[in-house]
Simulated scan of single mutants.
Amino acid sequence: MTPRRLRKDASTLWFQAPFVMAMRIHEMQMAALTGKSQDTVEMNRMVTEKVMATAESAVAVNMAISRAAFGAAMQMMTGGRPSAKKAGEAIAAAAVKPYGKRVRSNVRRLSRKKT
């Protein structure tokens, strides 16, 4: 299940993040061309979302590393061989998930927003 989540979030970042950037840049350009003040709410949202996603990602990565280390230790104690591939996929999925979630919500919000 983790590789599927990782593929979903990575493809979201690959295809939808440029759309979000283009929509936001378009709004800023239109505000500059029409002479109205820029939408400070959207600009503040951009910054706070990135900071929150980074913090959430850092916590998720630390938790995934702890789970992987504990799982590997338990497997080694019982005579098994831990899978580095599965652990790496879980850690990568944990790192990318907060960003993918926010990009998807921004695409939904910005695509229905009327300018």
Rank of each mutant, 00 (worst) to 15 (best):
T2F: 03
P3K: 12
R7Y: 04
D9A: 15
L13P: 13
L13Y: 07
W14Y: 12
W14K: 13
P18Q: 05
P18R: 06
F19G: 02
V20W: 04
V20P: 02
V20I: 08
M21F: 12
I25R: 05
I25A: 03
H26D: 12
Q29T: 08
Q29F: 11
T34R: 08
G35M: 08
G35A: 09
G35L: 10
K36E: 11
D39C: 01
D39I: 14
T40H: 12
V41G: 12
V41M: 10
E42K: 08
M43T: 11
M46Q: 03
K50M: 12
K50V: 13
V51R: 11
V51Q: 05
M52W: 03
A53T: 00
A53V: 00
A53N: 09
T54I: 02
T54E: 05
T54C: 02
A55L: 13
A58F: 01
V59C: 08
A60H: 04
V61C: 09
V61I: 15
M63L: 12
M63Y: 08
A64M: 05
A64N: 04
A64L: 02
I65K: 13
I65G: 00
S66A: 15
A68L: 06
A69G: 04
A69R: 13
M76E: 09
M77D: 13
T78M: 03
T78I: 01
T78C: 01
G79K: 14
G79S: 11
R81D: 10
P82H: 11
S83R: 02
S83Y: 06
S83T: 07
S83D: 15
A84I: 14
K85S: 10
K86G: 07
K86E: 11
A87S: 15
G88D: 07
E89L: 14
E89C: 07
I91T: 06
I91Y: 00
I91V: 14
A94P: 10
A94K: 06
A94V: 02
A94Y: 07
A95W: 01
V96L: 04
V96I: 15
V96T: 07
P98I: 12
R102W: 05
S105G: 08
V107L: 06
R108T: 13
R109D: 15
R112C: 00
R112I: 10
